Simulated scan of single mutants.
Amino acid sequence: MGAQGRIGLLDQGHYVCALPGDATGTAWIEQEGKAFAITGGSSYRTERGAGTYLLEGKQVTFTRGPLKGMMLLKLSSGLLQEVDKGGKLSRLRCHRTGPLSE
């Protein structure tokens, strides 16, 4: 996926990433190691460290840090969906769960 427009910023706060569950169990299955917090500017942090991201139009690319190389598509304010290496949308979705606590 190439650049899709103007550069922007994600809403600050905590984001949790999950895969859809099924009708017989949990609606969402949280994915360990994928949660992150947008801390300001183009910066994020995870349990494993901090890094930077680039938001071009609706495409989010983590450019440095523990999530480097991960790409997401901004579906709406606070809702993102992972883009796999082949450029297709994966089932993983990340949603903003609340503001930063500090």
Rank of each mutant, 00 (worst) to 15 (best):
residue 20 P to S: 00
residue 14 H to Y: 14
residue 84 D to E: 03
residue 81 Q to Y: 04
residue 100 L to W: 02
residue 73 L to F: 11
residue 8 G to R: 02
residue 48 R to S: 06
residue 14 H to R: 09
residue 43 S to H: 07
residue 8 G to P: 02
residue 30 E to I: 03
residue 78 G to Q: 11
residue 38 I to S: 01
residue 56 E to I: 13
residue 27 A to R: 07
residue 66 P to D: 04
residue 19 L to Y: 00
residue 2 G to T: 02
residue 93 R to D: 04
residue 22 D to K: 06
residue 85 K to S: 04
residue 86 G to V: 06
residue 15 Y to M: 13
residue 8 G to I: 07
residue 66 P to H: 13
residue 73 L to A: 13
residue 44 Y to A: 15
residue 51 G to E: 06
residue 60 V to I: 12
residue 83 V to Q: 01
residue 7 I to M: 12
residue 62 F to N: 10
residue 57 G to W: 08
residue 90 S to C: 10
residue 77 S to E: 13
residue 28 W to F: 01
residue 39 T to M: 05
residue 95 H to C: 07
residue 53 Y to V: 10
residue 93 R to G: 05
residue 85 K to R: 02
residue 43 S to G: 10
residue 52 T to L: 12
residue 51 G to Q: 13
residue 78 G to K: 13
residue 30 E to H: 00
residue 93 R to L: 10
residue 68 K to F: 15
residue 52 T to C: 08
residue 70 M to V: 14
residue 94 C to L: 07
residue 13 G to I: 09
residue 64 R to H: 14
residue 84 D to P: 12
residue 85 K to C: 05
residue 72 L to N: 09
residue 48 R to C: 04
residue 56 E to V: 15
residue 89 L to A: 06
residue 47 E to R: 00
residue 41 G to Y: 03
residue 3 A to K: 15
residue 69 G to C: 10
residue 43 S to V: 07
residue 9 L to S: 09
residue 41 G to I: 04
residue 50 A to E: 10
residue 28 W to Q: 02
residue 12 Q to W: 10
residue 22 D to M: 10
residue 48 R to Q: 02
residue 11 D to L: 15
residue 39 T to P: 08
residue 97 T to H: 06
residue 16 V to I: 11
residue 87 G to E: 04
residue 6 R to I: 13
residue 38 I to E: 00
residue 71 M to Y: 04
residue 41 G to E: 01
residue 44 Y to N: 14
